[in-house]
Amino acid sequence: MNVFRLAGDISHLLAIIILLLKIWTSRSCAGISGKSQVMFAITYTARYLDLFTNFISLYNSTMKIIFLGAAYATLYLIYVRFKATYDHNHDTFRVEFLLIPTVILSVLINHDFSPLEILWTFSIYLESVAILPQLFMVSKTGEAESITSHYLFALGSYRALYIINWVYRYYAEGFYDLIAIVAGVVQTVLYCDFFYLYITKGSRANATEMSIEA
């Protein structure tokens, strides 16, 4: 473990707590893409299957349980508890365009053609594009509540911090994993437009709502 990865995990944890709190306190999932949350739940389910077979550390197991639990709790809030506030009309991204290519790619490019490894690879590829429905929805509605933008900032920062962690691990331990690194770079690049707007939000007129040009 290094400080970059710890910061990344904390940023990731912060993001999903912000999202859960936003939905629970406002009793609404307006502006939230249920499709992205489904993608994240699939990602963590495919990646954390080794939760019971491969104990790494208390921290690792605890975080996996938290991420899985929060992902499904968020799905419950969106599709069951506050279903009436789910914005079907704006959450229209065709997720099959994400799922099919990532399944194919995980079968073609992986470290080891074993079920667990292919599922892990699939989860890495899927996570890199899972935020697209949400970013698409924000661009479609033309704005994001400030709390949603904080969620996106924390979520985008998590993988950016992981990239620094991978650079550190390469020089410090000689470890690297090109699949994770390439997917992580793609994932972080997708947020760049949003990062720019989020950071310059203070200097723009409508500082209250964050508007992303389509």
């Binding site: 990865r5 995990d9 990731h12 080794d50 491969n54 790494i56 550390s57 690792n60 975080m63 996996k64 991420f67 490019i109 470290h111 080891d112 892990w120 992981y162 962690n165 991978w166 691990r169 470890f175 690297y176 994993d177 090109l178 699949i179 994770a180």
Partner: peptide, 10 residues
């Protein structure tokens, strides 16, 4: 060349 990272990352 796709050297594996041990799966200790989340």
């Amino acid at each position: 060349f796709l050297k594996k990272l041990n799966k200790d990352e989340l």
